[in-house]
Amino acid sequence: MGSTRNEVTGGLRPVRVWDWPTRLFHWALALCVVGAVLSAKVGGNAMEWHFRLGLAVLALLVFRLLWGVVGGRWSRFASFVYAPATLLRYVRGRALPQEHLDVGHSPTGALSVFALLGLLAVQVATGLVADDEIASTGPLVRFVESATSLAATSWHKSWGQWLLLGLVALHVAAIAVYRLVHRRDLVTPMLVGDKPLPPDVPASADHAGRWGLALIALSLGVALALWVQAQGG
């Protein structure tokens, strides 16, 4: 019975790639970013939610930074920081089987992830010191010069906003291309955690002990976000 099943699946087996904390982070971040963008567009009283969601993104980014060091195998930055030569071979279709470049974040996917995380960090930072000179100021605006605050506000509302939307659109488009052209589903593994992979692919640890570690990392992010919020008075 087992050999028949292996023949049907081509010798693949479900391997835990995305642990629970990574998956929850991914979808929570997506919801917060969408909510922050929409609330900014609505304006008025909705700006209160824009600030709250911005602080939530801050907490999530701190979590991801820590989880990138201590998280599950395929969530660690070490698993998807690639040398330029590796990226070039991947783009040329010459990746080595033992490299497992398509298990977690591929070399091109890693570039997208780092770009999104970096740009989100800049957006949060500029939002914290922003001042629209009408009714809204960031909680850390008193710590910077007026010129710095105005420059941060300009970036946050123009280049930063449009670059972020562009990267999100590119991210979604890449997922669609992988699904329609390469017949690879990137969404389901981020929902269920597992991918059908060869038996020699190591799995990410995903158990109660790891979840406790994730809770500590998230708590540190929340603590920082609450401290930042308190600076606004």
Rank of each mutant, 00 (worst) to 15 (best):
M1I: 10
M1S: 12
S3Q: 10
G10D: 13
G10Q: 07
G11W: 08
G11R: 06
R13V: 15
P14M: 07
V15K: 13
V15G: 00
V17T: 10
R23K: 11
F25K: 01
H26F: 12
L29T: 11
L29K: 01
L31I: 13
L31N: 04
V37Y: 14
V37L: 15
A40E: 11
K41I: 15
N45A: 14
E48M: 10
W49V: 03
F51T: 01
L53T: 10
G54W: 06
G54M: 06
A59Y: 07
L65R: 00
G68T: 11
G71V: 08
G71K: 05
G71I: 07
W74P: 03
W74Q: 05
W74C: 03
S75P: 09
S75V: 09
S79I: 05
F80C: 05
A83R: 15
A95L: 00
Q98K: 02
E99C: 05
H100G: 03
G104H: 02
S106I: 01
S106N: 14
S106G: 06
T108I: 14
G109Y: 03
L111Y: 06
F114N: 02
L116H: 04
G118D: 12
G118N: 08
L120W: 04
A125W: 09
L128R: 00
V129C: 04
D131Q: 03
D131H: 07
I134L: 14
A135S: 11
S136G: 00
S136R: 10
L140S: 02
L140E: 06
R142E: 15
V144C: 04
S146P: 02
S146Q: 13
A147K: 07
T148Q: 10
L150Y: 07
L150R: 12
A152F: 01
S154D: 15
W155S: 00
H156W: 03
H156G: 02
K157G: 12
S158G: 06
W159I: 09
W159F: 12
W162K: 09
W162D: 03
L163T: 08
V168Q: 08
A173T: 14
I175P: 03
A176K: 02
R179I: 07
L180H: 02
L180C: 01
R184H: 12
D185C: 00
V187C: 10
T188N: 04
P189K: 11
P189D: 13
L191H: 07
G193F: 08
D194S: 09
L197K: 00
P199N: 05
V201W: 12
A205S: 13
A205Y: 03
D206Y: 12
D206F: 10
H207V: 02
R210E: 15
G212W: 14
L215W: 04
I216D: 05
V222C: 10
A223V: 07
W227S: 02
